[in-house]
Design a protein around this nucleic acid. Structure first.
Lengths: 164, 164
DNA sequence: CTAAAAAATTTCAAGCTTGAAACTTCATGC
DNA sequence: GCATGAAGTTTCAAGCTTGAAATTTTTTAG
């Protein structure tokens, strides 16, 4: 993160606007992320990756397979294994065998996990609102609208495509 | 990253727009970052953190102190130590003692480091342009303008303030 | 001068992250 | 059946990241 291009490049002509918006996105994202990260640690003694996992699981009452989870979070398979391991130890997550497939496991929030996440999610919303308080709702919608056009064009999309 | 809020929250009223724009920023940023990361690995056999360090150093011919570097990158002090260590081993970066202060060290790009970074920076600009090709320059400027308002208000700025 | 505080860095343990390799289980074709 | 490959995961090494503690040097107060 925090990529800073050399002046000779950041001043060059056709390339500039996208690189500049990218650097801006990076900076804002990093700022918000930092705030969320610190608050998660200070108030809940947890980490952003753990929060992300809980958030993903919270959306699926029936649980997710490990591979579905890593796909949802866009991280590697092996990554999720370790995080889930620790969440299981802490009693926030449960592993359930999948009927009829001994390879896969389903991962689900426990009651405790749901309750913990509910608190975190509420706090998370407050933190984000505080950091972005200077952005009026209309401005937010505008940014969302503009960024939504990425990957929407009929052309070949370099590697970026997704719903929502 | 990739925070997904529960429906009950992401649908709630006063909180929504900022959280939504935050999730959007996160998604776009993560996409671009992923592309840059993979390309750096595939084409230059290096990592994003290393690229970031080189980029920061490239802007200062006279070098940076370790603390200045970590401040510029917004990462912890200890973090930079390891990355610089490896960059020194690879001959891309040089450590120079600071005259009159035996505590500090100055870190600077070597000739090789400058040349390597120049190639990477050019490629980086191409990758970013490809990923964001659907964003017209005007849209980029618009997003930059809107996001620039963050931390600009006379109010107390929760933790976000910076130039550029 | 000297004790104590401050500054600049490194070290450290714990956790996150990746891509590749290994492993187990399942599905398919013959 | 049964070999072969695909699918789902875990393991692993290497590197990134953090916050805290430790180290060394400099500055400041008295």
């Amino acid at each position: 993160m925090s990529v800073q291009l050399p002046d000779e490049l950041s001043a060059s002509s056709p390339v500039r606007p996208r690189v500049r918006v990218w650097l801006k996105l990076l900076k804002v994202t990093k700022n918000v992320e930092q705030v969320v990260r610190e608050n998660l640690r200070a108030e809940f003694d947890t980490t952003l990756p753990r929060f992300d996992v809980l958030a993903a699981l919270d959306r699926f009452d029936d649980g997710l397979k490990m591979s579905e989870l890593s796909a949802a979070l866009r991280v590697s398979n092996g990554n999720v294994t370790g995080i889930i391991e620790r969440l299981v130890i802490d009693g926030l997550v449960l592993r359930v065998p999948v009927a009829g497939d001994k390879r896969a496991t389903l991962v689900r929030l426990t009651q405790k996990g749901q309750e913990e996440f509910a608190k975190m999610a509420a706090a998370h919303a407050r933190w984000v609102n505080a950091v972005l308080e200077d952005l009026p709702p209309a401005a937010c919608e505008q940014v969302i609208g503009i960024l939504d056009t990425i990957g929407r064009a009929p052309k070949q999309t370099a590697k970026v495509d997704d719903n929502d």
